[in-house]
Design a protein around this nucleic acid. Structure first.
Length: 553
RNA sequence: GGCCUGUUGGUGAAGCGGUUAACACAUUGCCCUCUCAAGGCAACAUUCAAGGGUUCAAGUCCCUUACAGGUCACCA
């Protein structure tokens, strides 16, 4: 019996040979420097922030080198695969600006010449290469049962030896063809393992683009490559797919680092050109003094839906991811505020190699605040409306009812060199401007209550607002005239119009122009802290000012 | 337990044998100012997990220890 016939018996029904597959997946016609990489999730649930981070990074490096970024679905664990898993991944990730050049593009479609991009549809390919290894004597059928495996593990840990199927524990390694076939004929189930040529006492060096050069023992474990369900293990699928799809760089979590010797070995015995590895540290969080991985279960901010639900702009998240990808991004962005993330050139040498990046929400909010402050009034209006449509019906109705007026509100101290920065997220908006709308003012004024500061005597308050509206208010005043009048009002009523004088001799006055302004401000809005009072007066207009003054009791 | 990685202020970090140890967030104080936000200025690591070594010189190179994380599946 030839080796080829033997391989056919172990893995029957394979349609193509590995040579044919090699021809079907030719080299890509790309620049030498072009990075081909992928995002390769398992469809086992919703992606989280760590996944987005990986996808973002892989995409950024591919795009800046005019390479290819594709989506591959790793669904070789059929028991964990969830319903509509692909759609869930895509829906979660698309809003954040992740774009694939190739690969799976919807639950049912894909594009590109290197597919299928779903591993469960590539079974024949994996088997063809497994047969190659069997033919060459580099892989074999292993009949170890669950019980035998457990026993070996127990024995190894009891005698403090390394765990795994290697050396003398790889019992079926030296079975002859005849012995193997005999067992198969008896109906014993088997899987395919590689016959590892490595020795634990040899060291290999791997140059990880992020972690640097790492020295590790060679792999000597007879790793499983084809499982009993006929599907490949992650390790085998990784080698085959990334070879055939001509991936140049593999971005993945650093939990894979310790598997690298297996992967290097697999590429070698298959005769593949090795890929470059970029192992990313997990996003972490400090919890009761301990550092741990960001967790979907414990940390709401790990879930991608947290962001739209809280009105945090997607762009801010991308900006944040860029700043934790490369430490020099932030400085560049400050210098080039009008440029896009894609204009920045990321550098592997500027990627942090530390054990974990703390995912810092306050920092993200700061980035978001700066981002929103630079938007135009239209953009703020549209984005807030978009948020409100899903999460705040009351706000949505108000915004839709008064589009121009709302934009004018958003324009207060906006669209200038040093814009006002008071929204970290769109969900902050209502809390800061509700009093500008009569409907909301009527509804919430009692709830919030008038926040008069130092002046609490209602007669004095009435005195100030009545004198102001009767003698000084003129809706046609410009800002300077307006404020001069407020000062005159202060002088007339015994308040210091000059803050310096007031600070020097506070006892000579009833208060200052600040107190007078506060009375006007609070009477109109109930709030002691608002944006520019002049702008608010202008937007409210004479009638509503009078109306609101009259309500104050 | 074996193997691997990491450890610079409250946080993220820059640093690649000679610097007053950048910068950003947070915090605190002052200034500006009709409030808030913003902005300006300043404070915040006598020291780079601990110890030892190499060197004229070490956060930077070497060793040991400690701590943290990862990994050792027919899961990815």
């Amino acid at each position: 019996m030839t080796n080829k016939e033997y391989a056919d018996l172990l893995l029957p029904g394979v349609k193509h040979s590995w040579e044919e597959y090699e021809k079907m997946y030719p080299e890509r016609d790309l620049d030498d420097k072009a990075i081909v990489t992928r995002y390769a999730p398992s469809p086992t649930g919703l992606p989280h922030m760590g996944n987005l981070f990986q996808a973002f990074m892989a995409m950024s490096f591919a795009k800046q080198t005019n390479g290819v970024f594709y989506l591959r679905i790793e669904d070789t664990d059929t028991s964990r695969t969830v319903e509509n898993g692909i759609r869930k991944i895509l829906d979660a990730i698309y809003p954040f600006g992740i774009e694939f050049d190739e690969g799976v593009i919807s639950q049912t479609e894909e594009k590109g010449k290197y597919g299928p991009y779903i591993q469960s549809k590539r079974q024949d390919i994996y088997k063809a290469y497994a047969k190659k290894l069997i033919e060459e004597g580099k892989a074999y059928a292993s009949f170890l049962t669950k019980e035998e495996l457990d026993e070996i593990r127990e024995q190894q840990s009891k005698s403090k030896q390394r765990l795994g199927i290697y050396g003398r524990y790889a019992k079926d390694r030296n079975l002859t063809k005849e012995e193997t076939l005999e067992r198969i004929n008896k109906g014993q189930s088997y899987i395919i393992r590689i016959k590892s040529p490595g020795s634990f006492f040899n060291k290999i060096k791997v140059n990880d683009l992020i972690k640097g050069t790492i020295e590790m023992p060679e792999n000597d474990i007879d790793e499983v490559i084809i499982k009993s369900d006929g599907l490949p293990t992650y390790h085998f699928a990784h080698a085959i797919d990334d070879h055939l799809m001509h991936t140049t760089h593999v971005f993945r979590g650093d939990e894979w680092l310790s598997s690298v010797p297996k992967h290097v070995q697999l590429f070698e015995i298959l005769g593949f050109k090795p890929v470059k590895y970029c192992h990313l540290a997990p996003l972490t969080k400090s919890d009761e003094g301990k550092i741990r991985k960001l967790s979907k279960r414990k940390d709401p901010e790990a879930t991608l839906s947290f962001y739209p639900e809280n009105g945090i702009p997607n762009e801010a998240i991308m900006l944040y991811l860029a700043t934790i990808t490369n430490s020099n991004f932030e400085g560049w962005h400050d210098q080039n505020p009008d440029k896009q993330i894609k204009d920045f050139t990321f550098d592997f040498r500027k990627c942090s190699s530390s054990a974990g990046t703390l995912y810092d929400l306050p920092k993200l909010y700061n980035i978001s605040k700066n981002y929103i402050s630079r938007l135009t009034k239209e953009e703020v209006y549209n984005n807030t409306l978009e948020y409100a449509k899903n999460y705040d019906v009351e706000l949505k109705e108000i915004l839709e009812k008064y589009p121009d007026y709302s934009k004018a509100i958003f324009n207060i101290e906006r669209e200038q060199k040093k814009p006002r920065k008071d929204y970290e997220k769109y969900s902050d908006v209502k809390g800061q401007i509700w009093y500008m709308y009569d409907e909301l003012f009527d509804k919430y004024k009692e709830e919030y209550g008038y926040d008069f500061q130092s002046i609490t005597d209602i007669n004095e308050i009435k005195n100030i607002i009545n004198t102001y509206i009767d003698k000084y208010y003129d809706e046609n005043d410009d800002k300077e005239t307006w404020f001069n009048k407020v000062k005159e009002l202060s002088d007339e009523l015994g308040y210091a119009s000059n803050m310096k004088e007031y600070k020097e001799n506070p006892d000579n006055f009833k208060g200052s122009v600040a107190d007078v302004s506060t009375v006007i401000r609070v009477s109109l809005t109930t709030r002691s802290q608002t944006p520019d009072l002049y702008e608010i007066l202008r937007l409210l207009g004479k009638d509503r000012i009078k109306e609101r003054f009259n309500i104050v009791k």
